[in-house]
Design a binder for these strands. Structure first.
Lengths: 145, 145
DNA sequence: CCTTGAGCTGAACCCTGCTTCAACTTGCAG
DNA sequence: CTGCAAGTTGAAGCAGGGTTCAGCTCAAGG
């Protein structure tokens, strides 16, 4: 019928391997009903979830973080556009943050090229936030991990 | 003396664990001379390499890719500022690409929120590049991996 | 009814990027 | 010269994110 997707169909539609879909299910990222014969049948709404998962992964968010974000969606009813919008706004913040970081990295790199430095003692890249460690000569890398 | 750093010193200066430094050496990302007693002694220039490695990692580049980029530096002489600048320019392109991608992702997401869609059949996010698959109804995820 | 492709499960395996450990050896301060 | 921090190695382990495989079962067209 119209509502239920097999795992093969979901895989084809989402571009995600069946094995990955089963894996996501084990992690609680998506869910499926079962037929009498124990085969998975996905609501079409799961496609949204899968799309969200892949998008978030692209941005470097772990499956665990994604799971807890998806948990914020109402379990009792089908999430509305508003529900998704809330999630999206949170994602947007993360994107902004990532973009900000990359821009700084790029600018710092440009600065280094411009000054021909990479000289370890003054470079922004080596000392983001101007944190020269106090002990001994020379700088320390203080990149966030 | 001034030139040689022990692994402990390099670790402290770079903010990278000793175990990680040994690992990088195994992968051919950095190198070290040895004392008579087989201890590693690093040229100060290795600090630059380590810094580059961490920066590139932040941008999501794999160690293997980083290695091959670093291989483009001259092995015979100490890399000059110009040598590094060339590498930096290549990195800069990658940063620009990443930034571009993130911006698109964010804008697409905003668009989805605005239109309340996430409706699978028209959304940019699900069909970046407007590639609606030809067979059957509905769209396919075509996110690059 | 029978065949064939699609699905199911658990366990094992893979790759990346490290960390930890045991068992030793160096090297420098006193 | 000695003692102890700092260094060495190979092997094993870990976390994340999956894939592969063996051995079966389902479902649907001919």
């Amino acid at each position: 019928m119209h509502e239920a997707l097999t795992i093969g169909q979901l895989a084809a539609r989402s571009g995600v391997a069946q094995s990955a879909l089963r894996y996501y299910e084990r992690l609680g990222l998506i869910r499926a009903d079962r037929t009498g014969g124990n085969q998975r049948r996905y609501h079409r709404g799961e496609l949204r979830r899968v799309a969200f998962i892949r998008i978030a992964q692209q941005v470097g968010i772990s499956l665990e973080e994604i799971r807890s974000a998806l948990d914020s969606l109402p379990a009792s009813r089908t999430p509305t556009a508003d529900d998704w919008a809330q999630l999206s706004m949170a994602w947007r913040d993360r994107l902004d943050e990532k973009i900000r970081l990359l821009n700084r990295l790029r600018d710092d790199l440009d600065g280094c090229i411009g000054c021909g430095c990479l000289s370890l003692s003054r470079c922004n890249l080596y000392n983001p936030g101007d944190e020269l460690a106090g002990e001994g000569p020379g700088a320390r890398l203080t990149l966030p991990r």
